[in-house]
Design a protein around this nucleic acid. Sequence first.
DNA 1: GCATATAGTCTCTTTTTGAGACTTGCTCTT
DNA 2: AAGAGCAAGTCTCAAAAAGAGACTATATGC
Lengths: 134, 134
Amino acid sequence: MTKLTGDLKGKRVAMVCGVPMDVENCPVRDVMDNIGGKWNSLMILSLADGALRFSQLRRLIPDISQRMLTQTLRDLQRDGYIHRTVYPTQPPSVEYALTDLGRSLLGLLKHFVDWSVENHGAIRSAREEYDAEA
Amino acid sequence: MTKLTGDLKGKRVAMVCGVPMDVENCPVRDVMDNIGGKWNSLMILSLADGALRFSQLRRLIPDISQRMLTQTLRDLQRDGYIHRTVYPTQPPSVEYALTDLGRSLLGLLKHFVDWSVENHGAIRSAREEYDAEA
DNA sequence: GCATATAGTCTCTTTTTGAGACTTGCTCTT
DNA sequence: AAGAGCAAGTCTCAAAAAGAGACTATATGC
């Protein structure tokens, strides 16, 4: 199903599931680097039900620092997963909402959530077993 | 489809897609923390076609440091995604292979790979547009 | 007039990650 | 027989990322 080496721009390069794993030009890595961060996918899941403001997100995810909340939102906005709208109230309020791309990713993430819930037990046992040997 | 607050052990807690987001006891976070790392999912994808040895993995993923390769393999082993077998050759060779749990996760990751390839263009454009405004 | 709220930024400390030298015993080359 | 290379890591030090939390400015409620 997958070959381990392939040819990309004349360079011999590893293939994973049919996709070249070239360090510089790998879509999977490019995407993964941005949604694989500690908070990024959690943020997208948090916006699943509709737009939220900065402070609402902060309350929803109590253990994120303001610094990381800002940065995560910026990153997701840059990659087109969320949209930022400023309302000219006093003080101004800012709303974050998923874009179409973000909702598309959300679909994937939901499968991931289901999988996690289903397999959490197995993972915990594996971990205990491993730790017991040390 | 999802409520934003729920009740878990008497504590009011955020819900995401029907799953409590309680910081201490959240399966999704627990799983995500371990496969969301920089190298973890790449490692599982690399083992998709069969077992590989330490040095083979190092060559397959040229930009991982030995230190992180060791650590990533340990983490994945601890959580039960991969299995480590030592062959008593001289020098001993060590083989890493996916477990059933690992193969199950691989199924999810493949969807992720497909999604990445499909949407990579959109993400790149979003990024360019964002950067142009600065 | 005091506390609270808005959306952040700034600085400082701690944690993670990366680069790469080093280990030990064996085989292959010259 | 000397030197190089490989196996699977560990160890140390430097660089990058993340976390904690003080601080900004304006405005409203009490």
